[in-house]
Design a protein around this nucleic acid. Sequence first.
DNA 1: CGATTTTGACCAGCGC
DNA 2: GCGCTGGTCAAAATCG
Length: 543
Amino acid sequence: MTQSYMDNSGGIGVLTLDTSAPLFLASSLSYGGGGILKRKQPMDSGGHHGGAGTIEFPFSLNPRRDAETANEALTSKRVVADEVDFFSDEKKKQKKKDTIAASPVETDLDLKVPSLGIKKEDLTIQTGLHLRNGDTAKESVDDGMAAMQAELARMNEENQKLRGMLSQVNSSYSALRMQLATLMQQRNRTPQAHEEKIDAENGDQGGARVLRQFLDLGPDADVDEHSNSSTASLERSSSTPENVEVGSMGYGLHKNEGNPREALELTPTATAEQESTMRRTRVSVRARSEAPTITDGCQWRKYGQKIAKGNPCPRAYYRCTMATGCPVRKQVQRCADDRSILITTYEGTHNHPLPPAAMAMASATSAAASTLFSGSTSSADGLMNSNFLSRSVLPCSSSLATISASAPFPTVTLDLTRSPDPLQSQRTPASQFQFPFPALGALPQPPSLPPVFGQTLLNQSRFSGLQVSSGMAAAQFPHPKPQTAMPSSLEETVNAATAAITADPNFTAVLAAAIKSIIGGNDQAVNSSQNDNVAKKSYSLQQ
DNA sequence: CGATTTTGACCAGCGC
DNA sequence: GCGCTGGTCAAAATCG
C-alpha cells in the first residue's frame, strides 16, 4: 500500500517492537498491506514535539531508525521554523505595543538526532529581537525583521545540509543492511544457530536475541516454546500460518518457508511472492445495507459475478479503478441467512493515495489485519476469537471482530451489523449506507461512531508498535480478567497494555539487555535501568 | 464514445 | 484423472 494515507498518530520516536521495525507502519495502508517498502511519511506536527519549539526523539535501536528520526527531525524542524516565525510575529506585535525592551527571544529547539550528531546549539534560532537602550521600537523591529530573515535563510541552508546528511545516512544504512542480511544468511547456515538455541534456553543473550527478532530475523523457529513469556509471544508470532511483516504499507506478508529464521528477513522491496501472499490476506466487513455495495470511498469496477456454493445470492467481484494497476479487489455478497447483511471482503493493497473516506476503511481493515497477525496463534482448529483484537480494534464490543486463520486465507471479519450504538442504524438510512468509520483527519467524526474506533484507526501504527508486545500483554492479561477489567477506550487499552508491558520485569530486563547489546559497544556505561527508562519513555510517547 | 456492467468461458487449486 | 468450486478474463451489452 503505497498510499499516502496513514495514521497521523505516528509512531514517531516510538520504540518499535514489531518485526517490521525497519519498515514501520507508515504512509500507506489499505485493505491489505503492502509489501512495498516505503519511507515513513513525515509526521505531522502534532505529537512530534513535546511542546512549542521543542522536538524530542527517543533513542532508536538501529540505523534505520536513526535515519528515520533524522528525517523526522528535518520535517519537524521545518514545522518548527514556521512556528518560530509565528511566535516571532507575535513578539513583534507585543513589542510595538509596549515599546519595552525585551530579552532576546530564543526558541528552544532541543533536537536530538543521535546518529547525526546534531547539537542543540546548531538548531537554536536567535530571532534577533534584541532591543538596545535608546532604540526606538520601530528600529528594533526592523532590526529584528532583518535578523529573522537572515536567520531563516540560514535555516534553509542548514536544512539543505541536513538533507544531504540524511541521504548519506540513508545510503550508509542501506549498505549496512545489505551486509547484515548477507551475514545473517551465512550465519543461519552455520551450527551457531544451535548454540544460540542453547544460549536462549539458558537465558543467556536473551535480550539480544529478542532484539534481533524485533529488528531483523523474527522469532526463531527452533526455540523452546515454553521459554519466557516474551519469547513465547514471539514464538506464537512465528507459528502463524504466514509470517507477517507489518510494514510501511500497513501490513504485508513476508513468507519464507525454507528457513524460519529468515522469515522476516530485511528485504528492501516486496517480492512477487510476498505480494501474492499479502494479497491473500482478507478483511471482511459485514454491514446491513440495502444498497448493492457499501460506500467505502473507493472507485470499483465490477468484473465478474458468480453464484457461490451454499449461498443463492450471487457474489460480485470488483476491482479498484482509482489507479491503473491497483491490485485491490473486493467481493460483495449478501448473507444467505440474512439478506439485509452485505458481506464485503477486501483483498490486496492499493498502489495509490486514497481519499479520506477510503482511508478510514483502509485503516480499519489494515489495523484489523495487522492485529490478526500480531495476536494470532496457530490454534488447532484454525479459528479463533481474539479478545485482544476485539477489545483493541473494536473496544466497544467484544463480539465485533473475529479472526479466522482457517484455510485458505487468513481473514479478519468486522461485524458491523451489531452496532454498538443503537442509534447508528436509525441515523443511517439503509439504502445509503456509509461506512461508519471516520475519515482520518479529514472528516468530522460522526457522533454515532464510537470515538475509540476512530482513534484506533488513527493510531494504527501504535498497534504495529505493540505487535510483539501484544503477545506479551496477553501474557500479562490472564484472559478472564481483562474482559472485565479491560478499559473501555483504546487509549486506556493502550495505556493498560503499556503499563503491563513495562511493568513486567522480565520484559524490561530483556529489553535493557537487548538495547545494551546494541549500543553497549559505544557506551558501556548505559545501564539497564536507564534503558528501562528510555524504553518506558518511548512507550509513553505512544500514548 | 468511453466507461461500466453482464455473462459465459476459461483456468487453477483442491479433494476424491 | 476427473469433477467441483472459486476466481478471473474478455467480448458483448448497457449506460451516461
